[in-house]
Simulated scan of single mutants.
Amino acid sequence: MSTFDHAGLMQGINESLSTFRKAQPDTMRGFSQLAQAAMAEGALGAKHKELIALAIGVSQRCSGCIGFHVKALLKLGATRQEVEEMLGVCVYMGGGPSLMYTAEALAAWDKLAVATY
Rank of each mutant, 00 (worst) to 15 (best):
T3V: 15
H6E: 07
H6S: 08
A7S: 06
A7I: 06
G8C: 01
L9F: 07
M10I: 11
M10N: 08
Q11Y: 05
G12D: 09
I13L: 10
S18T: 13
S18N: 11
S18Y: 04
F20E: 12
R21S: 11
K22P: 02
A23D: 10
Q24M: 15
Q24L: 15
T27S: 12
R29Q: 14
R29F: 06
G30M: 03
G30I: 04
S32R: 13
S32N: 14
L34K: 04
A38P: 00
M39W: 04
A40G: 05
A40N: 05
G42N: 06
G42H: 04
A43T: 08
A43C: 04
L44F: 10
L44E: 12
G45M: 00
G45Q: 04
K47G: 03
K47N: 05
K47E: 04
H48T: 14
H48P: 00
L51A: 12
I52P: 00
I52S: 01
L54N: 00
I56W: 06
G57C: 14
G57T: 12
G57P: 00
V58L: 03
V58W: 00
S59D: 08
Q60C: 13
Q60H: 11
Q60G: 09
R61Y: 10
G64H: 12
G64C: 13
G64A: 15
C65W: 06
V70W: 03
V70N: 02
L73R: 01
K75E: 14
K75M: 03
K75V: 09
L76N: 02
L76G: 00
R80G: 04
R80V: 08
Q81C: 07
V83P: 00
V83K: 00
V83C: 04
E84G: 12
E84V: 15
E85P: 01
G88L: 14
V91H: 01
V91I: 15
Y92G: 13
M93Q: 14
G94A: 06
G94D: 05
G95N: 09
G95F: 04
G96F: 08
P97S: 01
P97M: 04
L99D: 09
M100E: 13
M100V: 15
Y101A: 02
Y101D: 01
T102F: 07
T102A: 11
E104I: 14
E104Y: 07
A105S: 01
L106A: 07
A108S: 11
A113K: 02
V114S: 05
A115S: 07
T116D: 13
